[in-house]
Amino acid sequence: MRVKALFIRILRQIIRDKRTMALLIFAPILILTMLHLVFNGDDYVPKVGLVDIPEALEEQLHLDDADITKYTDEGTAKTDIEEKTIDGYIVFDKNVPSIVLEGSDPNVNGATMRWIQEAFKPLQPAGTASDLDIEYVHGSDEMGQFDYFGPVLLGFFIFFFVFLIAGVSFLRERTTGTLERLLSSPLRKWEIVVGYIVGFGIFTVIQSTIIVSFAIYVLGMLMEGAFIYVLLITLALSFTALTLGTLLSAFANNELQMIQFIPIVIVPQIFFSGLFNLETISEWLNWIGPFTPLYYAADALRNVMVRGAGWDEIYLNLLVLIGFSVFFVILNILALRKYRKI
């Protein structure tokens, strides 16, 4: 069978090219690990100064989880802020606290303010907002930013690397003349495209299994749904990436021109993938979202991994991804007509 010969050849090429194989599997793992460490690292411990604090008050406050420095006059505290030894201080003027923050880093500001609110909780009358029990429909208060980003990034890396590798290998097929040789054999044009899809499909299943397992079992990414759905989504997404990559390689004359598609085709997809809240993207831009494959994959991945969704909630997204792939496959076959009309 000709398609079988083609996908066996593609798999052999990938296996021979150790560096590319490493890129496809270890680069996403490396980046996910780094992101995990960046976003799920230890909580920031704010450094807070207390100026002229009455002893009676101090005993009532929760002063854990922060580096406390006590000052007797506001001037020294101010100097320390300038030298960045503290993030902010609280002045007690006749038992009324006022807060001064260093203020240049929003993350530090947030952490400091949250700590101050916690610290002053005992002073507030019982039954106010801060005492409310919070219930989570999905996720939990344990859920870190990484758990929310994770599914999107997982999809993104698979899309990015498959797009690049498939695009470049199809480009090489054109530039080395092997494509011409394929077309001077009885191989049908659709068989070339299908051979590529099957070859890279097999590899992507292995790639996704390794990356997704690593993210879930080693990095402890939140995983509420079924593993098989995650695989299905990444597989459908990689078909889209593959068919788009091979299609765009028709418009590139060399590897560098293939790389030039990254800022145009790949990077913008991140903005619409749900990494940023779509509702806050300006209106004259956010209509692009539904035209990007990553939008559907990221939505489905997040539904499965964070919200534990099943088949009913993801099949529409899968259908759209397969629709994209079919559309690109047809365009690929048309693009091959440039080389052989039949």
Partner: peptide, 11 residues
């Protein structure tokens, strides 16, 4: 047989 060798170098 084309002018370019059209072979897969990795194989």
């Amino acid at each position: 047989m084309a002018q370019s060798d059209a072979l897969y170098g990795e194989l």
